[in-house]
Design a protein around this nucleic acid. Structure first.
Lengths: 144, 144
DNA sequence: TTGACACCTGAATACTTGCTCATATATTAC
DNA sequence: GTAATATATGAGCAAGTATTCAGGTGTCAA
């Protein structure tokens, strides 16, 4: 359980601090722009939080889980049936989504029902869907 | 180069088809809801595209690159200086972002300047930033 | 109590990822 | 031409990830 309790985030922040501490021997090309960029850059902790949220949505299985839960509450068993995957695999992913704060669960007898945690997730999902549906030229076209 | 030319996407789609093909022996709890969910589920290819886009933003380094480029165009060298990382590391990540279609580049002599590809990326980035800044209780609080 | 069921979880495994290091390419200055 | 500079890239490694498998917990019904 401790595996998901912010250990990774902490490690990332430590790494980030080390990066900042490391001296950078690259010569600056446009110092004014560099200073401006440094001033407005999102801090390492925020960047890590953002990356974690996006990472929660960075797997097709999880995207499809979110897509399903965006419509209605569903139990683990039915989610597995809808996605055509094993109950175990879905359960593992649901735990991840739960720890990341994207879904909530509600126990009812031996069943466990999952829903999206808030409408913020819906927004992110919709933005991603928009971007995937239009303005998508296909990854292979951009290899140059 | 072929590593980034849609090979992964293709593999994911193949996996997805296998999942669908595998028969699911879990008993349905609420068949009506399952049928409804199946009908509205995003298809595997779209889910894969979405996951790829989110994945592009699922790393703190890339988030910070996007954050920097959201403000202004910058060359690789200065980007490396702003982020306090090696030129090589930044260049690798920029290639990824380029192949994923999040950034564009412009050559000027021996310099290469990068910008965000479109404002759609800005939207996604902003949504992520909102979500990270408020409504964030911290990953560790949700381990139950 | 016994068994069935819905779900959870740890270990194992194959795969993916982000960095560094060394090196390659391309442009500019001399 | 040579040297210096800006960027790109391939190999390699350490770390992370998604699934399967085997087994565990808690609930319900007979």
């Amino acid at each position: 359980m401790s595996k998901y309790s912010g250990v990774k985030a902490t490690r990332m922040v430590i790494e980030y601090r080390q990066q900042i501490a490391d001296h950078c021997d690259v010569v600056l090309v446009d110092e004014a722009r560099v200073r401006a960029a440094e001033a407005n850059l999102v801090d390492g902790l925020t960047a890590t939080h953002m990356a974690e949220t996006f990472q929660a949505l960075s797997d097709p299985t999880r995207v499809r889980i979110i897509s399903t839960l965006a419509q209605q509450e569903l139990c683990v068993c039915d989610l597995a049936a809808v996605l055509g995957m094993s109950q175990s695999a879905i359960s593992h992913q649901l735990r991840l989504l739960r720890v990341m704060g994207l879904v909530r669960h509600r126990k009812e007898g031996r069943m466990v029902y999952y829903v999206l945690d808030d409408e913020h997730i819906q927004h992110l999902f919709q933005e991603g869907l928009e971007h995937a549906r239009h303005g998508r030229r296909g990854v292979a076209d951009r290899s140059s």
